[in-house]
Design a protein around this nucleic acid. Sequence first.
DNA 1: CTGTTAGCGCCTTCAT
DNA 2: ATGAAGGCGCTAACAG
Lengths: 305, 305
Amino acid sequence: MAATIKDVARLAGVSRSTVSRVLNAKSEVDPETATRVWQAVKELDYHPNTSARALVRQRTDTIGVMVADVTNPFYEKIIKGIEATANAAGLNLAFYNSYEDLAGRRKIILSALEGSRVDGLIVVGSHLGDKSTLLEMAARGLAISLVERNFADPSIPCVVSDNKAGARLAVEHLLGLGHRRIAFITGNLHYQTAIERLEGYKETLAGHGIPIEDELIAFGDFEHKSGYEAMKQLLALPQRPTAVFASNDMMAIGAMQAIGEAGLNVPGDVAVVGYDDITFASMVYPQLTTIRQPLYEMGPWRRRV
Amino acid sequence: MAATIKDVARLAGVSRSTVSRVLNAKSEVDPETATRVWQAVKELDYHPNTSARALVRQRTDTIGVMVADVTNPFYEKIIKGIEATANAAGLNLAFYNSYEDLAGRRKIILSALEGSRVDGLIVVGSHLGDKSTLLEMAARGLAISLVERNFADPSIPCVVSDNKAGARLAVEHLLGLGHRRIAFITGNLHYQTAIERLEGYKETLAGHGIPIEDELIAFGDFEHKSGYEAMKQLLALPQRPTAVFASNDMMAIGAMQAIGEAGLNVPGDVAVVGYDDITFASMVYPQLTTIRQPLYEMGPWRRRV
DNA sequence: CTGTTAGCGCCTTCAT
DNA sequence: ATGAAGGCGCTAACAG
């Protein structure tokens, strides 16, 4: 079996506490003693038991990261940003997929946090519902931060970007290209970000004296398929739009697929703009114009004090 | 702070051992006593401390999953398959990104396994190098399994699919469409899978009496960009291919991008076939023909006995 | 600078 | 069916 601190102590001819001191560089230790300890560590290939350490230290040095689905490309940059920061801070990460299932998410939060499996939790881009679970957690002093999600309660720190401004950029880009009939594909309107992007779209058009036509607003849910379906619907309009702004890149890619299947081309027949700047957006042809979000920078958090 | 088993015991008026018994349903407990314990558990919102439990049980009920990059779309189905199986078995998963960095991977393996953070490790699609670390681990009785990677040593279980047969399917599909000038984009040839797909390509052409032309074989590394570059190279040939088979979907998507940028179209000017059937493959336009791998089914493992 | 002592929270014999 | 006692591997006072 794996060597324990006891084995190291015996081999080095010191007590367990001394080994612990050497390992953790807590207080001063005689250099020679330290050398003997390190030799023993090496010889026995000793690695401190994570559970034992966590138990006595009352912390795991692990942060949970809950996203809807780690494999969703949207999270790539956020995750990488969090990862880089965690590495630098010597913290481990534990990923949890909620799959947007409320009950499931609550269960994850409970088992992870209450079982003291993690020291804190970063919740990325979740649903507006079930604030209660998060508030409960925060009330118990657990570190929770939210990324890409608004939360009115000040007890929970949030990192969000200015979605309205982003939407304005997108619409103005299309206006600048001469488009006047600009369609919009919404995200899942249960999310604050989706609501804000829609508002940004409307306000920008209004600001330019362009009437908002309901038929040009199609409803999606941030998933690829919904962008595809929404675009098909928009293309079926008596007078189809000359441009479309999708609330995220995955839906924009879906929209491009629908446009292609209709025998039309991008951007000649219909211009497409997405949102998020996920890596995949630059991998398709024709390349997708998109609004960059500082996803990588948004992930990292500040520890609560 | 969080309630402990002691608090529950006190509130229920029993000993800690009884609480433990009730929680783990090990031996028989008086139904009434059990009820009182459960009530106390609920009232105190008690959750067993993961570290303490792991320490005494000498297992964490957690399996590590090491992939090059969780956010790489290739892993999506594999990860989901593993996840489903783990959930069913009541096991937790801990994901590790190796980023294909050998030293980094070794470090991950060591810290995870040797720190007893996980009970076993699933290594997905890794490099052929550094067999030693894995063998060391296996020799110590740690459960390790490999997915989508061959490993000659029988001490380590592997799950792999028949890459040669898959490549044959792809090439025969193109031959069936009347193509004779079929190019091939290799994967990273440090991987067994890449080698096998190349062999399958060559053997199939040879089997149909078509000479293998070196200029039609472009070298990639499984990444999107390399597919794009390889295709640009193939398109620059005096006599360009009428079809291309890329060793995975990401490179095929990159190839499609290069074809589009060259003002050509798929499949009219150049037919493209990929490999893996990642979710993305069906999201682009024109839709990508691909060889399906049973990725979802390949992830789950059998526990070693 | 180092060893002794006392737990962290839980499970598991061994008694009863 | 239940309690008492011991220990998993480690760290953190407290002495010396």
